[in-house]
Every structure is written in C-alpha cells, then in structure tokens.
Amino acid sequence: MRILIGALGLALLGGCTTPGDLLKSNPTIMAETSKSPKEYAMCVLPGWQEHQAGATMNETLTGYRLISSAESIGQTNELLEIKQTSHGSQVRLYQRMPGMTIGRSKVTSSVYNCL
C-alpha cells in the first residue's frame, strides 16, 4: 500500500507544469489586436475566471500575463502572453494539453472574442 501511494505521488509530481514549461512549447493561438495589452487582458480575464476561479492577471515589463492553473496539484493549464506592439498587442496562448478541448471552450473563446 505504501509503495502504491509513493508511486502515485511521484506520478503527480512528474505531471506538474509551470508557466516556464508552457513557454517552451509552441503557442496554441497567435494573434494580434489593435487593443492595448491592459484593455485586452481586462476583456479576457472574466471568461477565464468563469473557467477557473483562480485565474490571475499580472503586469509584465512588456504587457500582461494571464495564468489559469490547478493550484491544488501545482499545474499551469493555460498561459496568455499579451505584449505591447506599435499597433496594439501581440497575443499568444500556451496550453498544457492543446488537443484537449473539453471544458476549455471559455478559455479559447475569450481569447478570440476579445480580439
């Protein structure tokens, strides 16, 4: 029984995904908008919070970053980088499991609807 619990614990730790891990992968969505980074982030955030109550928004040196994660297991599910450009903002969405769309429609629709 102890071996089973230990193996399960290791499996869960091995599945942890940090924001830095997501940034090493290719973005699921890449787009541009004429909105400022703050305006765009404020549009997307409510939809993300409907999907994951703990979704957060942080200001960065070049714009904003939204993160949706399962804090209880230390896993970042989505990360949205919004960077200032000369004509508005560049948007990049990174997802832990990009092929899995069940329960994620609010996340992607918020990204597209706010463009």
Results as ranks from 00 to 15, higher is better:
C16A: 06
L66T: 09
P37Q: 04
A53R: 10
A31F: 02
L10W: 09
S36K: 04
E78T: 03
T76P: 02
A11N: 07
E71Q: 13
T33C: 05
L66S: 07
R92S: 14
P98F: 05
I102M: 07
T28M: 15
G103I: 02
S36M: 03
A11G: 07
A7P: 04
K35F: 11
H51W: 15
G9D: 10
N26E: 15
I3V: 10
M97I: 13
P27G: 04
I67S: 02
S86T: 15
M100E: 14
C16Y: 04
G14Q: 06
I67A: 05
N58T: 14
S34I: 09
L13N: 13
S89L: 12
T28L: 14
R92Q: 15
L8I: 11
G6D: 10
L61C: 08
T85N: 13
E50V: 10
K38G: 07
G15Q: 09
P27D: 09
Q95G: 06
D21R: 11
A70M: 10
S110D: 01
H51M: 13
L66G: 06
L45T: 00
G54V: 05
W48K: 00
W48V: 00
V111D: 00
T85W: 10
R92L: 12
T28V: 15
G99C: 11
S69M: 10
L23F: 10
Q95L: 12
G63E: 04
A70V: 07
Y40D: 04
I3W: 08
A53M: 09
V107I: 14
C43L: 01
I102Y: 05
T33L: 05
D21W: 05
I102L: 07
S25R: 08
S25M: 12
I67D: 08
L66C: 11
E39Q: 09
L61Q: 15
L80I: 08
M100W: 12
E32C: 11
H51E: 14
S86I: 13
V111W: 00
A11E: 08
M57Y: 00
W48F: 06
Q49P: 01
V111Y: 01
S109K: 07
K38V: 06
S89R: 13
K83T: 15
A31K: 10
V111F: 00
V44N: 00
S68Y: 02
Y64E: 03
Q95N: 09
N58W: 07
W48C: 02
V44W: 02
Q95T: 13
N26R: 15
T85V: 14
R92Y: 05
V107L: 12
Q84L: 08
I73M: 11
L10M: 11
S36A: 12
G99P: 03
G14C: 06
L8V: 11
A55R: 04
M1D: 15
S25E: 14
L45Y: 00
G20Y: 12
I73C: 11
A55L: 05
G47I: 02
I29P: 06
T101M: 10
K38Q: 13
L80F: 05
S110Y: 01
T60P: 08
S110V: 00
I73A: 08
A53E: 09
T85P: 13
G54R: 06
L115K: 13
P98M: 09
R96V: 02
L4S: 11
G15H: 06
P27E: 11
